[in-house]
Design a protein around this nucleic acid. Structure first.
Length: 779
DNA sequence: CACGCTCTGCCTGCG
DNA sequence: GCAGAGCGTG
């Protein structure tokens, strides 16, 4: 078994695996098998070195990476996987905090504030400190605080370091109050998760001894993405045995903006004396031509470790390049190529991914994909857990689990409407502050604090207390959610709205129930607390399901770690990619270049790079030259280079080439020169691009989200044609956005609608309401 | 207190 | 172009 283990590895991979003692840095190029090395190393430690599973700590950044690793390790070592501490930085730290956060004066039932909660709290802070919210937006203050936390600078220290600077002084005050308020809510934010863990370890030798002795072997994935706090955590834990393996690729460091410090990987040898470095340079993913293009791009950055990726894969096709008139023509080209490859190479929709620099670029592509009836899914954008109804439901659950959570209280006290408006809310807040109690306590004892509120809140308090009783009786989470939505009148209020949007919200809440039921099946600890914990630490990229045959759309950042047979990199224009905000410094440009490199190396067999002569973004149109990165790939490495460049030059692109980036330049937005010509050309999509004649602005003018809702039933309603249900018959093949292809096996009239039974290829039998199922007919 | 209108500001985003 | 905040009116 053990020999077999090593036989599946190439010499360098093998070296990285057997190098178990002392610090080991694995420089793993794109597609070089780094997950394989990590998983085999864990197995090797157990089988060859006889290390107990509970002495191993393996850390990743994303849940997705953690799950993948878990599955692959399990395949090698079986049940022992359950004793290995394998998880994200955050999940590992939360696990420690649940045990020891009382050392910091918190209750172990603490909750984790997400971005929205943070903003709400910061708004309170700014108000309380009378800070001018024009100059200090919640977002910017939070961003400064987060940067400080990434650098492990606490409020007092912040004040000392930056004292005297007008802006920083104010930020310091906000930081201080923000931390205090978090504590009042028995809440911590994502950055605190790491920092508090470090603090507990550093100030409590018993805790440190325990964990440092426990984790004899530590493995860290994506090391180039670590920030100072994460580095400190790892080195604190590794200090006793110094058996640390870090795997990473400095060329794929793309998260500087959120605190990742590339010097962590560059200085690894200094930080951990006696480091063995292993370079993995053989790429198993891409064709030679794709790899050549990638190498040509990244060599412009200069690489400390001087690695050169190579492959034994076939030469493959040349990467394609295309220039469109505008983003619609660009998208149409992408669609044409997808259809072409499907026909010519029998490729599936799920073999394709379209990658862009920012989420707002997805719209044009979506429009064209929809027009051409191509199934697609978007990763990112408006996330499931950020939807209003989901946030509301979770706020209820959080309040039930932790009544001191005043942010959640404020979110749902008037949701559904209970006649508690801003004035009442402010009063509750004031009284809570004065008496140092939570807002919920104020309302619970309204007869004592605010007699006027007794009538309007009695039912609310009773419901919450009743639901708390359910938690006490260890009722299933899904049942608690059901009861919550029912007893608070939340679902009823939505039903009363009787709109497509409300229906969609109800469906999302049902989806939350499904999540809860899955949790009950899978989790050992079935408590509400644990459920909420899991939700706080989950993200949408976790479940990119491969079973659906759909084209994937996402940002380049989301694509890291993934691979597809065919990749489209769109919007390769100066100002878009590299983005305008990155043009200031060479460091930022290098990071953008790494992002481009990441994009190229996602492709296994086909690579397309596209740009457009003109593009409408954020409501204004601009003409941008092709990205400098395109020119870094020698033209003989492209298929279609002359056509693309010729058509991009034929434009009058310099005639009125004025790129007005409408954000990030607050101070010169109306500054000099704005009147020197007539400003940006405004392109009205439905008018100017004859590409989509069937779409009226009214139909397309909604958010992507409401679009999806409209995509079948809604559109025909909007076009004043009655919904034609007659085309849905038993035996008809249909397509559902979530469940994919299926066949109708039954129809039952229900009011003016039908209950429809469908046998799905990949999801089995489902019963849905026809009007809301948004089924597409498959010819 | 609720609703609807206008204004503003916007990249990428792990957990 | 669009969502969310803020403000004024019924």
């Amino acid at each position: 078994m053990e020999e077999n283990l090593l036989n599946e590895l190439n010499p360098m991979q093998k070296e990285a695996v057997v190098q178990t003692e002392g610090p080991c840095l694995v420089i793993a190029g794109a597609g070089s098998g780094k997950t394989k090395v990590l998983t085999y190393k864990v197995a090797y430690l157990m089988e060859h070195e006889k290390v107990a599973p509970w002495n191993i700590l393996a850390i990743t950044f994303t849940n997705k990476a953690a799950n993948e690793m878990k599955e692959r390790v399990e395949a090698l070592v079986g049940n022992a996987i359950n004793d290995i501490w394998l998880g994200t930085f955050h999940s590992i730290c939360v696990r420690i905090l649940r045990k020891f956060i009382d050392r910091l004066g918190y209750d172990t039932s603490f909750i984790i504030f997400d971005t929205t909660d943070q903003k709400t709290l910061m708004k309170q802070v700014l108000k309380e400190l009378n800070v001018d919210s024009k100059m200090f937006s919640e977002k910017s203050v939070l961003s400064d605080i987060s940067n400080a936390k990434n650098e492990m600078i606490e409020p007092e220290q912040y004040k000392l370091m930056y004292g005297g600077d007008y802006r920083k002084d104010i930020i310091a005050k906000c930081y201080e109050l923000y931390q205090k308020k978090l504590k009042d809510n028995n809440a911590i934010d994502f950055d605190d998760i790491i920092n508090y863990t470090i603090k507990i370890l550093q100030n409590n030798s018993d805790v440190l001894d325990y964990y440092a002795s426990k984790f004899k072997y530590i493995l860290v994935d994506e090391y180039q993405d670590t920030n100072k706090a994460q580095f400190t955590l790892i080195s604190t834990l590794a200090n006793k045995y110094k058996n640390i393996t870090a795997v990473g690729d400095s060329d794929q460091s793309i998260y500087r903006f959120r605190g990742a410090d590339i010097t962590n990987i560059l200085n690894f040898e200094k930080d951990f004396p006696g480091t063995q470095i292993v370079k993995l340079e053989q790429n198993y993913r891409c064709t030679q031509n794709i790899l050549k293009a990638a190498n040509e791009v990244i060599k412009n950055n200069g690489d400390k470790y001087g690695k050169r990726l190579w492959t034994e894969n076939e030469e493959g096709n040349l990467p394609n390049i295309f220039c469109g008139e505008d983003e619609y023509e660009e998208a149409s080209y992408v669609v044409e190529e997808i259809n072409h490859l499907r026909r010519a190479e029998y490729m599936k929709y799920s073999d394709f991914a379209i990658l862009y620099r920012m989420n707002s670029q997805s719209r044009a592509i979506e429009d064209v994909l929809r027009r051409e009836d191509i199934p697609y899914k978007i990763i990112g954008g408006l996330k499931f857990y950020e939807r209003k109804e989901i946030k509301d439901a979770i706020a209820y659950l959080r309040l039930i689990a932790n009544s001191s959570d005043s942010i959640s209280f404020a979110r749902i006290i008037n949701e559904p409407k209970r006649g508690i408006g801003k004035t009442s809310l402010d009063n509750i807040q004031k009284i809570a502050d004065e008496n140092s109690i939570s807002m919920y306590e104020v309302v619970k004892h309204a007869e004592q604090y605010m007699p006027k509120l007794v009538n309007s809140t009695k039912a609310f308090v009773d419901t919450i207390e009743e639901l708390k009783g359910l938690v006490y009786q260890e009722t299933d989470v899904s049942e608690i959610i059901k009861q919550t939505l029912k007893k608070t009148g939340y679902t009823d209020a939505l039903k009363l709205e009787n709109t497509i949007e409300a229906q969609s919200r109800i469906e999302n809440l049902e989806e939350l129930l499904t999540v809860a039921m899955e949790f009950e099946k899978e989790s050992a600890d079935k408590s509400l607390q644990e459920f909420l914990n899991g939700i706080s630490l989950s993200s949408d990229t976790d479940n990119i399901e491969e079973s659906d045959d759909m084209v994937t759309l996402m940002t380049l950042h989301s694509a890291k770690g993934l691979e597809y047979p065919a990749i489209f990199l769109v919007g390769l224009e100066e100002g878009i990619f590299p983005g305008n905000l990155s043009m200031g410094s060479e460091e930022d440009i290098q990071e953008e270049r790494r992002l481009f490199y990441v994009g190229i190396t996602r492709a296994k067999r086909y690579l397309y790079i596209t740009f457009a002569k003109k593009r409408t973004i954020f409501g204004s149109t601009s003409y941008n030259p092709p990205s400098r990165f395109v020119n870094e790939i020698p033209k003989e490495l492209f298929n279609g280079y002359d056509d693309a460049i010729e058509s991009s030059n034929s434009a009058d692109k310099f005639a009125d080439s004025q790129f007005e980036w409408t954000y990030g330049s607050k101070f010169n937005k109306f500054g000099s020169g704005s009147s020197k010509n007539n400003g940006p050309v405004i392109t009205k999509r439905a008018v100017d691009s004859g590409d989509i004649p069937s779409a009226s602005p009214a139909t397309f003018g909604k958010s992507v989200d409401s679009f999806l809702k409209n995509m079948n039933v809604g559109v025909s309603t909007a076009a004043s044609a009655p919904t034609d249900l007659s085309q849905y018959k038993v035996g008809q093949a249909v397509f559902h956005k979530k469940f994919g292809e299926g066949v109708i096996t039954g129809l039952d009239p229900e009011g003016d609608d039908y209950k429809v039974d469908i046998e799905f290829k990949n999801f089995g039998h489902k019963r849905l309401m026809l009007k809301f199922a948004r089924l597409e007919i498959i010819e």
